[in-house]
Computed example of a mutant assay.
Amino acid sequence: MSDPVTQLPSAPVVVLSNLTRSFTQGGVTIDVLRGVDMEVMPGEIVALLGPSGSGKSTMLQAVGLLEGGFGGEITICGRSAEKSNGDARTALRRDHLGFVYQFHHLLPDFDARENVVLPQLVAGVPRPQARERAEELLTALGLGQRMDHRPSQLSGGEQQRVAVARALANKPQLVLADEPTGNLDEATSDRVLEEFLRLVRGQGSSALVATHNERLAAKMDRVVRLHDGKLA
């Protein structure tokens, strides 16, 4: 009888090593991130908890490769961000990351369906397939009857659902969410978060969700706290 095969753990989706970020204002240097070390594993949903101004958004900008000026190392899906040129970093964002912000940032001149179709077209998905994927996601989020509506015709909760669908459209390996329900009332916030978590788990993505809400953070797989520029 042969020995059972040992299942080795998958590699982390993202690894942060000694991540730092400082800003200078009025001749004073402010250390926002002071050596952050962190890993997010495949399929793991991690809450990044901390009060406003603690550096949560700065940390997500680093992981999302949205700006420079960071020290340390960022590895996404096995690729070093520091060793990647501009085009490679753009490809990393496009192919592996999805983003949800506190404010939906939907394109106002396009309806809900097209807002979810467009990022797929950028990634090279044929329009019929992109449209089918958009309708699948929007229906799953309870927007089956609202696909033809523009953002201005949708409620705040509906707008944020479209933003969630857009973030998940290309089935990213990691979704970065910055206070994704912070602009909603409590009841709507709970519904949108539950739908977000259900869809992320359903497609096997990982997520790093910045929030200051302990109650919402408790719904996720793991909670890390950003305090004084470091993770506790």
Rank of each mutant, 00 (worst) to 15 (best):
R113W: 08
E82R: 14
M147Y: 09
G27T: 06
S152H: 14
A218M: 02
L168P: 07
P9V: 04
L97I: 06
E194P: 06
T211E: 05
D228F: 10
L193D: 01
P9N: 09
D95R: 15
T58L: 03
A123Q: 10
G72N: 04
A163G: 07
R89G: 05
G124I: 07
E132G: 11
L19G: 01
Q7T: 14
L48C: 05
Q129T: 14
E186R: 15
R133Y: 09
G26A: 10
L106A: 09
L60Q: 04
E158D: 10
L65F: 03
G69C: 08
R150E: 10
A169I: 07
R222E: 07
A165S: 02
R161L: 00
G69D: 07
L216S: 11
E114H: 13
L65N: 03
G156H: 10
G98Q: 06
G53I: 04
G144A: 10
N183D: 15
F70A: 06
G144E: 09
A207S: 07
A47K: 02
L106K: 03
V162C: 07
C77P: 01
T139S: 14
S10R: 14
Q120F: 05
Q61A: 13
L138I: 06
T181E: 01
A112M: 05
T20H: 09
G55V: 03
A217H: 00
L231A: 10
Q25F: 12
V36K: 03
L184V: 05
H227W: 10
S2R: 12
R131W: 00
A165V: 04
L66P: 08
V5P: 03
K230L: 13
V125H: 08
R215Q: 14
G204Q: 08
G72L: 05
T75N: 13
L197P: 03
P128L: 00
T90F: 11
L138V: 08
E186P: 00
A169R: 07
P4C: 02
S189P: 02
Q7N: 07
S152L: 12
L193E: 09
A134V: 04
L33P: 02
A165W: 01
G142N: 09
D3K: 12
A177Q: 06
A130Q: 06
F99N: 03
L66A: 11
E214Y: 09
V15I: 14
A140I: 00
E186K: 13
V100I: 15
M1Q: 11
P42K: 08
G27F: 04
K219L: 15
P180Y: 07
D148I: 00
E39G: 00
D190V: 12
R146G: 05
R166A: 08
